[in-house]
Amino acid sequence: MLCARALPAAGTTIPHGTLELVAEDQWITAGHPFSLGLRFELEPGWHIYWLNPGDSGEPPRITWQFPEGLTPGPIEWPAPERLGTSSIVDFGYGDRVMLIVPVRVTAGLPAGEPARLGAQVKVLVCREMCIPGKAQLSLTLPVQSQPPAPDPRTRDLFRGARKSLPRPAPGNWSFRLEDANDSFMLTANLGHKITQAIFFPLAESQIENAAPQELVPRDTGFRLVLHKSDQLQKPLDRLKGVLLLSGDRAYLIDVPLGKPRTAIKRYGARTRPA
């Protein structure tokens, strides 16, 4: 093989970067799902946003243009980074990121005619300032009757992107969420001590993004204090989000809010309907 890099830079220009639509497989096969990747390469210092952008900005929005028989699934978002200053914090990705999109393929898709996949992407790219961009992407893939085969040119890209996807929390871990006046207390029992953890809520306006998340290490895990958002107008049922442990391992968690303890009720002025 002559090329050392997985792919030559072949992206469409977006403000301060490029965007490219890539496929994990060499061809499409009826009845076999496959994955597409939206590969963002940004100039140093520029960033785009996560599903929940935090205090400012907005996530990329994609309109798919697919032939009949192909159905896009939801974007698989890698764990984000905290971006910002003391009073304003956003959630997003700097430098480069690939968003993976699974695609379902109907069993009746006829082989022969190649499939042209299109995507219109609206993306806000920011550094000190924000610039909205729009890109029209396309990718043509053969449709064959033989089983799908991975494309060696994109294998490393997809492998790298999957590593940064949050995974489901192991079944033997347990979490508890309690309402404590102006904060939520997230307690994690993982069976071992944790000294570093950041929580990223999937939904906006639940926690104060810029507030420091105070971590209390415990022998069996940790406790994290999440300051409530001023925009939170009604009590939460649950908190869903990405938990980043020790800087690189990310897990998806979904923790129902437990009943407030009497002690907390006495301390807190805010009460919740039962």
Binding site: A180, S183, E208, P212, E214, V225, H227, D230
Partner: peptide
């Protein structure tokens, strides 16, 4: 005990971010 710890913890956290909680709020 646990409830005192919560109270102390909450007080510590609130004290740590005066900028955020002093900002104007609806109501």
């Amino acid at each position: 005990n646990r409830s005192n710890r919560y109270t102390l913890l909450a007080a510590l956290v609130l004290g740590a971010i005066p900028l955020l909680i002093s900002a104007a709020k609806v109501g």
